[in-house]
Design a protein around this nucleic acid. Structure first.
Length: 270
DNA sequence: AACACGACCTGGTAGC
DNA sequence: TGCTACCAGGTCGTGT
């Protein structure tokens, strides 16, 4: 579910609420989310550690601990994290609880249970994420020239190119489709064949869409199952198959790409 | 090396 | 009502 803006919102909220807190115990209500690590292992690796920093990298969340280890969480499709005042009455969708010494807890809610929680040495995690997550699209490093270089080196269709976390980290199915609409690029078009001005427009669209979403999502992304409500009105193509394009009026189309649905306007995007 | 595809999970909804 | 089929914001492992 969550793409970069939602994950960023989760991190900001956690920073406000649990930065500096000490972990008393981690309870894995669904042990498989940590596999191959066991609940015992997870408990031992986090015991009595405090949360010194909370970092987002792409869609990954890192809780850096005082014991040189980090809790690595990926929300996948339906995950969410929020601090709760009392962990004695967990919801059925909770997959893990990080109990804090002050009595509160961080709940890892995830109806589909596809999310992940692991703990490793911080250096180890850094190493792994270094190879699996690419540039931060909201960092200064991500400019038109950077995107153009990436594009010229790829043979992928535009949509799949944007979804590849090793190149650009944080775009998912919704924002990739939206960015392509704003840059007027057909999602099936090979990214390397897109003109430089269009790539510059794409870079600008990515930054603008993600920035806007980070700000609006931060206000609304709280309870589980409550995500795109506020922005669904501003989506131009995602989830709008058969509805008319907000720019030209043509019917929005849906095509499969990489096993997922891609939405686009057949007139505006080419 | 660069794909496609199933697996991993649950819940909601459309259609019969 | 109840069943089935399909869909969902992500990633990984395996196969061609």
């Amino acid at each position: 579910m969550p793409e970069l803006p939602e994950v960023e919102a989760v991190c900001r909220r956690l920073r406000e609420q649990v930065l500096g807190a000490t972990i008393r115990r981690i309870e894995l209500l669904r042990p498989a989310i940590a596999s191959p690590q066991t609940p015992d292992e997870i408990r031992k690796l986090a015991r009595n550690a405090s949360i010194l920093a909370i970092e987002r990298r792409g869609k990954n969340i890192l809780l850096h601990l005082s014991n040189l280890r980090s809790i690595h969480i990926h929300l996948r499709m339906t995950g969410n994290l929020y601090s709760i005042p009392d962990y004695r009455f967990p919801l059925a969708s909770y997959r893990a609880l990080i109990a804090l010494t002050d009595g509160r807890a961080i709940a890892f809610g995830d109806p589909r249970a596809l999310g992940r929680l692991n703990i490793h040495a911080t250096t180890e995690i850094n190493q792994r994420l270094g190879t699996t997550t690419g540039v931060e699209p909201l960092s200064p490093q991500f400019d038109a020239a950077y995107l153009t270089d990436l594009a010229r080196a790829s043979r992928l269709p535009a949509k799949l190119f944007l979804m590849d976390q090793r190149r650009i980290a944080g775009l998912g199915n919704i924002y990739a489709a939206e960015a392509l609409f704003h840059a007027r690029i057909h999602p099936a078009r090979r990214i390397r064949s897109v003109s430089s001005p269009r790539l510059a427009a794409l870079q600008a669209a990515i930054v603008r869409i993600l920035s806007d979403a980070v700000n609006s999502v931060y206000l609304t992304y709280t309870a589980p199952g409550h995500m795109l409500a506020s922005e669904s009105e501003t989506l131009m193509v995602y989830g709008r198959e058969g509805e008319s394009c907000r720019v030209c009026g043509r019917a929005i189309r849906r095509i499969p790409q990489g096993g997922r649905s891609t939405f686009y306007c057949p007139r505006c995007q080419n």
